[in-house]
């Protein structure tokens, strides 16, 4: 359970949260709107998808800067790699509501697995489709993600599946490991921390920390399944061992 002290309702910090949500609502349909306008230019659908994702990356970055400007959160980015990743399975732990925004701000050409509700939402739905994101309830989800990885797209997965209630919970499911083994791609871990904890499951938008939280984003070097497990073993054992290795990695990096 969170022990974060919450800011009073009528406070600058809550006003900052409100402004941030409005900004997000304004930003979210922009990439799709611009992409629709770009349709008059004869470019291939793959290029349009790439441009949409570039816009998403810039807007996510801008949004993180705005939140800092509004005084809502400050954030720190640590890079352990400096070249642009391609065809990587990006995994991240999931402490806050904005984790996907922080990852997309700093990793290019990301394909997200989106909840069906986001596809139905007016602000996000059109952008999702133009960006070539895949829905979580898609019956061919696994095959589509393998295909995207093989075409050099980065795929973002949250192995916890949902926001956690504590940093070291690390209840990782095996989807990331399944994809690594099936596609042969490398995993690129991103470590997210929010101190004090904020933007948690069940919290309303106005329940922000009284103290300005710091969100740290660490982009780690990628590693292969081969580095983690003996790949002569049955795949089912590899899935389990890779998942445990990822949990151990995150536990090591998140333990104070």
């Amino acid at each position: 359970m969170s022990e974060t002290v919450i800011a009073p309702l009528l406070s600058r910090r809550v006003a900052a949260a409100g402004m941030s949500y409005v900004a997000f609502g304004l930003f979210a349909p922009l990439p799709a709107a611009i992409s629709q306008i770009l349709r008059i230019i004869p470019i291939r659908a793959e290029r349009r998808q790439l441009y949409t994702r570039q816009m998403i990356q810039h807007l996510c970055w801008l949004f993180t800067q705005l939140m800092q400007l509004f005084g809502l959160y400050r954030h720190v980015v640590v890079r352990e790699i400096f070249d642009n990743p391609s065809g990587k399975l990006v995994v991240a732990n999931h402490p806050t509501l904005l984790d996907a925004v922080f990852v997309m701000a700093y990793i290019p050409n990301v394909c997200c697995v989106a909840k069906a509700s986001l596809a139905r939402n007016f602000f996000t739905g059109l952008t999702l489709r133009q960006a070539g994101f895949v829905l979580a309830d898609d019956s061919n989800l696994f095959e589509k993600l393998i295909d995207k990885l093989s075409h050099g797209e980065n795929v973002l997965l949250f192995p916890e599946g949902t926001r956690n209630t504590s940093d070291l919970e690390l209840n990782f499911r095996r989807g990331a490991a399944n994809l690594m083994v099936a596609s042969g791609c490398d995993v690129l871990p991103v470590i997210l921390q929010c101190r004090p904890r904020a933007l948690q499951k069940g919290e309303k938008w106005y329940q922000v920390p009284a103290e300005r939280a710091e969100i740290s984003v660490t982009i780690c070097r990628p590693f292969s399944a081969e580095e983690l497990v003996d790949q002569t073993q049955p795949r089912t054992l590899q899935y389990r061992q890779i998942t445990r290795a990822l949990v151990a990695f995150y536990r090591c990096r998140l333990t104070p």
Partner: peptide
């Protein structure tokens, strides 16, 4: 899980 089932049936 479902991915395991596919591997199981193949085995």
């Amino acid at each position: 899980d479902s991915i395991d089932m596919l591997d199981l049936l193949l085995s």
